[in-house]
């Protein structure tokens, strides 16, 4: 089957900076691909070229087999975009924003009205549809824009940092809507994000992008397992026997305890604790996409990513145990 999105050596240069560097990629129908990368990696530029907002310097892009450079209007009929920045008109009501969108995409009155109703229901905005968008919260606005992006039933949906600047609960809400869309229709979704957890939970495949180039492309789990082991921090008296168990690949003394890299953590944790003599504190740190990212790019994703990494990204299980 023809890929939904295909790029061949797609390149964009801004004066002397190469924002996107010979990107070649194929995305099949119904797939969700996440572009993960630090700010300025070329994620948004790539999206802008795919949705015909930006002309590539060289190379080509095809959406549903249509050349994006030669037939931008045809491509735009097939695509829906949810932008990084708010792009609804705050002087208009939610309903009007959706209705104008339907008109721009050539939907007739009846099907537009029906579809708007449906989208308002899905995004839970029915009650506020008659209010001007300037009275909406950031999360509601984003939901409205998601409703709008899906209104004309695009074959390919672009999401540029769909949850940037939203609080964690609004972010989860958006994810659940996107999850629904993914399972309900066969929409191909391309999203950019620098939130690891977002990329992890939504994408079928992740393209790690740095300085305009894809440096890794695989499923989130494959990317994580390619990196390897989860980490266990044990405090207390640990026997040499425990440290030399076969599933331990690496350990290091850190302060009053040890940092131990463990293969197959879920299966082996029990054994490890049994062999260790006197453990007073345990901390488990699952391998995260951020580790993958760090390993691949050699840098932290950025300030915002860091902030998140303290809490949500790393599932830290912590408990104090006093062994008998």
């Amino acid at each position: 089957m023809e890929p939904s999105v295909k790029t061949v050596n797609l390149t964009k240069k801004f004066s002397d900076i190469t924002a996107v560097d010979s990107l070649s990629l194929e995305i099949s129908q119904g797939e969700t691909l996440g572009f993960l990368g630090p700010n300025g990696a070329g994620k948004t530029t790539t999206i802008n070229m795919l949705c015909t907002l930006l002309r590539p310097t060289s190379g080509s892009a095809y959406i549903c087999g249509i050349d994006a450079v030669k037939y931008p209007l045809e491509v735009r009929k097939k695509t829906g975009i949810i932008f990084q920045e708010p792009s609804s008109d705050d002087m208009l009501t939610g309903y009007e924003n959706l209705y104008l969108h339907a008109m721009l995409y050539g939907m007739n009155k009846n099907s537009a009205e029906k579809k708007i109703k449906e989208m308002l229901f899905i995004t839970g905005l029915e009650k506020r549809a008659g209010d001007q968008v300037r009275t909406y919260s950031g999360g509601m606005r984003r939901r409205l824009e998601i409703a709008r992006g899906l209104l004309h039933e695009p074959a390919v949906l672009f999401l540029d940092e769909p949850t940037l600047g939203l609080d964690p609960s609004a972010r989860r809400e958006i994810w659940s809507y996107l999850g629904k869309i993914k399972s309900d229709r066969k929409t191909t979704i391309i999203l950019t994000t620098h939130y690891m957890e977002e990329a992890d939970s939504l994408s079928d495949r992740i393209a790690v992008i740095d300085r305009g180039k894809i440096i890794a492309l695989d499923s989130p789990s494959a990317l994580k397992s390619s990196l390897g082991e989860d980490l266990v921090f044990l405090k207390g008296k640990i026997s040499d026997q425990a440290l030399n168990l076969p599933f331990i690949t690496h350990f290091e003394k850190k302060g009053e305890g040890y940092e131990i890299a463990v293969k197959g953590l879920s299966k082996n944790i029990k054994k490890l604790l049994e062999e260790a003599e006197d453990v007073s504190e345990i901390e488990i740190r699952r391998v995260s996409l951020e580790d993958v990212f760090l390993k691949l790019t050699g840098k932290k994703i950025d300030e915002e990513g860091k902030e998140e990494s303290g809490g949500v990204f790393e599932s830290v299980v912590r408990y104090n145990s006093v062994r008998k």
Partner: peptide
């Protein structure tokens, strides 16, 4: 600035 223009620029309208 509002990015509303992008919404129109990305629509199938010349």
């Amino acid at each position: 600035r509002l990015d509303f223009l992008k919404e129109v620029l990305a629509a199938p309208i010349s």
